[in-house]
Design a protein around this nucleic acid. Structure first.
Lengths: 206, 206
DNA sequence: CATTTTATTAATAGATCTATTAAATTGTGT
DNA sequence: ACACAATTTAATAGATCTATTAATAAAATG
């Protein structure tokens, strides 16, 4: 209600984001988007031509956020290595927390669309290649210094991403179960600390 | 082709499972199911009355499998504790490996259906209550003996489930990325070992 | 202010899709 | 072989849904 203050294209896109993140491509109609925005259905097609193009606009924007959530994996060089890893895990977690529904949205779309998956894998490879090389070198250095165990960069990267992503992909199911056993405890904060522990212990146990 | 050898109800259900696990409720039509089975569309409704009832039949059966994948979390008492935990993680992982698309299917459906989520959380609580109490006692015992660190049962349970589930929820995306960096290595086997390491180190680091 | 462009709507063609109904076919017991 | 039940099909009503078109309203421009 009273969304007509701004330009309609933006309003329609925002409503589409909201609905596509909640349901999925086939469950959301341009009719519904228009209805909830309060405009004529043809207007959705006027601005975005097809439902697919509209969905793609949403997807691109959300995938960008998801990609950028991986940037903390680069980390800064000032702190001791272990402290930096802690910050990396927490930083990545915190960004996902700002967009808790994005991981499931992305994974769901990618699982049914191998076309798009290939494109994005390519994109991701380029993005992560430099990180990977640097990280592996650093891991080898730290191992040589006796600070951490030997580990492949890809394993560590997946450890972090999978652990953090899994919290949000399973939320709110995991959240409800968690609360049953740990009523007066914050699920997200608790899992963040747990993920950090898992990663640090993985790196430092001998 | 040539699926008419067995009874149609079963054939329709199997095709529905296949399609619902691949796409989602709204993207699969009874028309498509009938077309792929090679029968009249009305037959789908003859056996299952509504598309929703058919979907529910699929969901119940898949959720049962998913629930039962958690049974290895009970474990057997013969082995030393740490070895049993290894078996629990590996056992849970291996069951998911037999049904790699189920976790995403379940999580997706639950995320958009709070009605069903509440029902299932209740079901799950009952199922896991006894495990939880026993596990917590055992964890306390092992901690007292100095074999492991202090840890809440709910945290350990979630560590195992989230780590294992995340592998299959992100597959095949993670798989493709993994192969880019570790070409001649089996993703699933590698992640299984990695998950075991993460859990064991989490329990035994001092 | 007249004109041209842009935004918005109403109407609708054309595809599906779900679910039902009635008719046709197949199967079964006697 | 006949009656009866179970299975399968054809046909279709009724609801969408996507996308387009033509007409109207609003904004911008010279």
């Amino acid at each position: 209600m009273a969304t007509d203050e701004k330009n309609m294209e933006e309003v329609i896109l925002q409503k589409a984001e909201e609905l596509f993140l909640e349901k999925d491509f086939a469950s959301v109609s341009t009719t519904q988007i228009a209805r909830e925005v309060g405009c004529n259905q043809a207007l959705v097609h006027y601005y975005f031509r097809t439902k697919e193009k509209l969905f793609n606009a949403v997807f691109e924007s959300k995938f960008k956020i998801f990609s950028e959530s991986l940037l903390p994996l680069f980390g800064k060089k000032e702190l001791p290595f272990i402290d930096r890893i802690k910050e990396v895990v927490a930083g990545h977690f915190d960004i996902l927390k700002l967009h808790p529904t994005i991981p499931r949205f992305i994974l769901n779309e990618l699982s049914g669309n191998s076309q798009r998956r290939k494109m994005l894998v390519e994109k991701f490879k380029n993005l992560s290649q430099q990180l990977y090389v640097d990280l592996q070198k650093e891991l080898d250095d730290e191992h040589a210094k006796g600070n951490i165990v030997e580990i492949r960069a890809i394993d560590l990267m997946l450890d972090v991403v999978l652990l953090n992503v899994s919290v949000f992909v399973t939320y709110p199911l995991a959240n409800e179960i968690f609360h049953h056993y740990s009523a007066n405890d914050n699920f997200l904060e608790s899992r963040k600390q747990e993920n950090i522990k898992l990663i640090i212990n993985r790196l430092t146990n001998r």
